[in-house]
Structures are given as structure tokens and as C-alpha cells.
């Protein structure tokens, strides 16, 4: 119970620290479940970013995974799927799926967070 409260608390803090709010569709299509199930969305983004470097490739691989959510199509480690529930196949159509991925990538985009130090 304490873990859940702490997790929720930290997730809330994380959301508050975002420069802007997620789009409504992103909130509805993704974050509702992610928040409920405490799935760290930004961690997933960073994991994909670290592996694929560009949003274009991330989008392709995420799309592939969301259309066919199997472990072999994910880059997340085994422990991740032990800790978090496995995703079911999305009932969103392709357009909605693409739009949601774009919003997702845009929302966590590191380039928007990076700043130069002030001397």
C-alpha cells in the first residue's frame, strides 16, 4: 500500500514536472491505463530513445508493438513485464494509433527539456 502511494506520489510529481500537459487523446488512449497500472511512460520513451535514437524509428517500432503486443516485439526487459501487466492488443485504428504515438513522443521529447546552463 505504501509502495502504491509512493509510486502514485512520484508519478504525480513527474507529471507536474512536465513542461506541458498531454493532449486529450494521449491522456485518454494511453495515460489513463498507464497511470492506473503505474506504467512509467517516460521510462519506456527513454528506453526506446536510447536504443533507436530517432523519433521516426521509435514510432515505427512502437506502432509494430502496439499492433502486435508480444514480448518479442518489445525492447523492454523481462523484469518489466513481471512488474507491470502485459499490454493487450489496442482497439485503436491506425490513424488514432499513429496520432497517439506522435503525441506521446512529442510529450516526452527530450529536446524540449534540454536547456543551456545560465552562467
Amino acid at each position: 500500500m505504501v509502495k502504491i502511494i509512493l509510486g502514485f506520489f512520484s508519478y504525480t510529481l513527474m507529471l507536474l514536472s512536465q513542461p506541458h500537459s498531454p493532449s486529450l487523446k494521449l491522456q485518454q488512449n494511453c495515460f489513463v491505463c498507464h497511470q492506473t497500472q503505474e506504467i512509467p511512460s517516460e521510462l519506456i520513451y527513454r528506453r526506446y530513445l536510447m536504443k533507436y535514437s530517432t523519433h521516426r524509428v521509435i514510432k515505427t517500432t512502437l506502432l509494430e508493438y502496439l499492433q502486435n503486443p508480444k514480448k518479442k516485439n518489445s525492447i523492454m526487459p523481462k523484469q518489466f513485464f513481471i512488474k507491470f501487466p502485459f499490454k493487450e492488443k489496442s482497439d485503436l485504428n491506425m490513424t488514432e494509433l499513429e496520432q497517439s504515438i506522435d503525441d506521446y513522443l512529442d510529450y516526452f521529447d527530450v529536446t524540449k527539456k534540454l536547456v543551456l546552463p545560465s552562467f
Partner: peptide, 21 residues
């Protein structure tokens, strides 16, 4: 995962990061 992420710029050097493309 906090924001902002302060880029490690330090004079007299300049630096930039590029994606795979």
C-alpha cells in the same frame, strides 16, 4: 526525469549532440 535537463556546456568548449540520422 525532472525538467529542465541542463546541458553540460562548459567554456571554452562548444558541443552538440546528433541523432543517428
Amino acid at each position: 526525469y525532472t525538467s529542465p535537463l541542463v546541458y553540460p556546456h562548459q567554456e571554452p568548449y562548444h558541443s552538440a549532440i546528433y541523432s543517428i540520422d
